[in-house]
Amino acid sequence: MRILRLPAVSELTGLPRSTLYLYISKGQFPKPVKLGIRSVGWIQEEVDQWLLQKKESRLF
């Protein structure tokens, strides 16, 4: 399992921090995992799955 920090998640998704946290609050993006007192990260498999779902749901 690999943990991604915010800059890597933003780069993978193309979304800025504010949009990621908006999606998290609406239940539309995986919640981060607490790594320490002031640090969080995302499980790469969950982010990859979210991206795959977005890809599959797009209209042609």
Rank of each mutant, 00 (worst) to 15 (best):
G36M: 01
R38S: 09
F29Y: 08
K54V: 09
L15R: 10
W42Y: 02
M1A: 04
Q44S: 11
S25E: 08
V40W: 04
R17V: 09
K34C: 06
F29W: 03
D48Y: 02
L6Q: 11
P7I: 15
L4A: 01
V33W: 02
R38P: 04
W50S: 03
I3K: 02
I43V: 14
R5Q: 11
T19P: 05
Q53M: 13
D48C: 06
L20M: 12
M1H: 04
I3D: 01
A8L: 14
P30A: 04
L59D: 14
L51G: 01
V9Y: 00
L15H: 07
K31R: 11
T19C: 10
E45Q: 07
K31M: 09
I24D: 04
K55A: 15
G41H: 02
R58A: 05
I37D: 13
Q53G: 05
F60V: 12
S10D: 04
L51R: 14
V40Q: 13
P32E: 08
R58M: 15
Y23Q: 05
I37G: 12
Q49Y: 03
L4W: 00
P7V: 15
L12N: 08
L15V: 06
P16N: 11
G14Q: 05
K26Y: 11
I3G: 00
F60I: 11
I3R: 03
L12W: 01
L22V: 14
R58N: 10
L6C: 09
L22I: 06
S39C: 07
L20I: 15
T19R: 13
W42N: 05
T19K: 12
V9Q: 00
V9H: 00
S18N: 10
Q49M: 09
L6H: 08
G14A: 14
E45V: 08
R38W: 05
S57I: 08
E46S: 04
D48K: 13
R58T: 09
W50K: 12
K55V: 06
T19S: 14
Q44F: 02
E11D: 08
Q53H: 13
R17P: 05
Y23S: 04
F60M: 12
W50V: 01
Q44P: 03
I43Y: 01
F29G: 12
G14T: 03
V9K: 00
G27A: 07
P30L: 04
M1I: 03
G41E: 11
L59F: 12
V33Q: 03
L6V: 05
Q53N: 14
L12Y: 01
K54Y: 11
K55H: 07
L35D: 11
D48N: 07
I3E: 05
L35S: 07
L12P: 00
V33F: 01
W50C: 05
G14C: 13
L20R: 08
L35W: 02
Q53D: 14
V47H: 00
I3Y: 00
E45T: 02
L35N: 05
E56Q: 15
V40P: 03
L52S: 10
L59I: 07
Q44R: 13
L6F: 00
R17E: 06
G36A: 10
A8T: 15
Q28S: 12
G27T: 08
P32W: 06
G41Y: 00
Q28T: 04
D48Q: 10
Y23V: 03
A8D: 10
Y21A: 08
P30F: 00
L35R: 05
V40F: 07
K26W: 06
V47N: 02
W50N: 05
